[in-house]
Amino acid sequence: MNPLQTTIRHAPTGPVLEVNGDLDYTSAGEFRALITALTLQPGQRLVLDLTGLEFCDSSGITAMIVARNHVHAADADIALAAVPDHTLRVLRMVGLDQILALHPDSEAATRP
């Protein structure tokens, strides 16, 4: 079990949230609170950099859907960067790879 750690940096395209550790039943609530407290301008893009994501369960998947709904409500967009294989497999299984933009890394995800 790895505690969830997040850091936010700002790119020209909008906020980039680096997610490290486990996004699971115990940490998803905190993550959802963090996401929904973010203010996005219309046209901005929230990038979740998942390079350091160790584990993601269905609660984590729900948190990503919450993030998507939150940014869409602000007429902004969301993209995932560097999705680890274990999570990519789940995203494909549940069809979310069709509705969340996936990028190989945060550099590609923050290209205007």
């Binding site: 069809g95 979310l96 509705i99």
Partner: peptide, 14 residues
Amino acid sequence: TPGGLLVGVLPTAT
């Protein structure tokens, strides 16, 4: 059954 989306996430889903 690839590509089927989670049920209830989007207003229209395939």
